[in-house]
Amino acid sequence: METKKQTKSKGVSAGLIILGCLALAAIFFFGVCGHPSHFDDKGHPLPGDVFGTLYQGGYVIPVVITLLLTVITLSIERLFALNRASGIEKNERFVLKVKRKIDEGDINEATKLCDEQKGSIANIVREGLVRYKDVEDIPNITNADKAELIQKEVDEATTLELPYLEKNLNIIAAISTLGTLFGLFGTVLGMIRAFSAMGHEGAPDSTALAVGISEALMNTALGIGTGALAIITYTYFSGRIQTMTNAVDEIGFAIGQSFVKRHGGLVK
């Protein structure tokens, strides 16, 4: 019996990514957006200057930028990881080829296809095929029970692979909410500043009023944009993982049915 290699969780640490994005956000906010070239002599942003206007958004802005950069970075990391996990060939084509070999009873050739395909799906299917060969020599149990052992092996291999496939997706899911919440928090702070300027006796402080409104709007826009991007990427990657697990379930069922069909349901 071949020993099963447990798949270890791989990928970039989310903590390191967040710290790196925080550093980049701080450099961008204070070094780029806060540069004097974006402001006039009175400290107001130049007309049409996006960076100066963004700087007026207040200190919540770098936090939201950190979340935005984290989503982008983790999405790129997951894209490469899932492409690597899918293997060389498209999943649909690989599934059809393996099922064809299984239906023909050519387990060795199906195993060879898995070795050539590589990736998480191929690893899982290969474990099921190895188990297919092993259970043929187990005495005193029905072939239907042997088919269940094969399916159990596929399920266990899937459980080992899933943490790698889903790595960092929980961070993206959390940011889909946090991005919007921090945006709203910055909006509230901006509105507080705006209403404070309007509450002065006499003529309102127009500069403070403009800064407060700008702070509110910039936080709203950036927070909603970050949350929306996180939702889109999370939905996309979750869908890809579900498609991959469905393909594994399909092949696992085919392996078990093929065993019962070729060996019958009696005690061997």
Rank of each mutant, 00 (worst) to 15 (best):
G58T: 03
F28N: 12
R100I: 02
R93Y: 14
E116P: 04
V32K: 03
R100P: 01
E116S: 10
G43E: 11
I76A: 14
L67Q: 06
K10A: 12
I61E: 01
T53G: 08
S9E: 15
F80K: 05
V71P: 09
T111N: 13
R93L: 12
I76Y: 05
E109A: 15
D115T: 06
H44N: 14
V64K: 04
K4V: 12
T111I: 11
G11I: 02
T7V: 15
S13M: 08
P36S: 04
L67C: 08
K10W: 08
L82Q: 02
F30R: 11
Y55S: 00
F94L: 10
G119I: 09
A81V: 00
G119S: 08
L19A: 15
I102V: 15
G43A: 12
L113A: 02
V95Q: 05
E89W: 13
G105A: 03
S9H: 03
A85L: 00
H35W: 12
I65S: 06
A23L: 15
V50T: 08
D106M: 06
N123P: 03
Q56S: 10
V98W: 06
S86W: 04
A81R: 05
K112R: 13
K101W: 00
K42F: 11
T111Y: 05
A26T: 01
K118N: 15
D115Y: 07
A26R: 01
V60H: 06
A110E: 01
C21Y: 05
Q56W: 09
Q56I: 06
K99C: 05
G57H: 07
I61A: 03
S13A: 14
V12I: 13
K112L: 08
K4A: 14
D103F: 06
E92Y: 10
H35A: 15
D106S: 14
L24P: 11
S13Q: 05
F39P: 08
F30L: 12
V60Q: 03
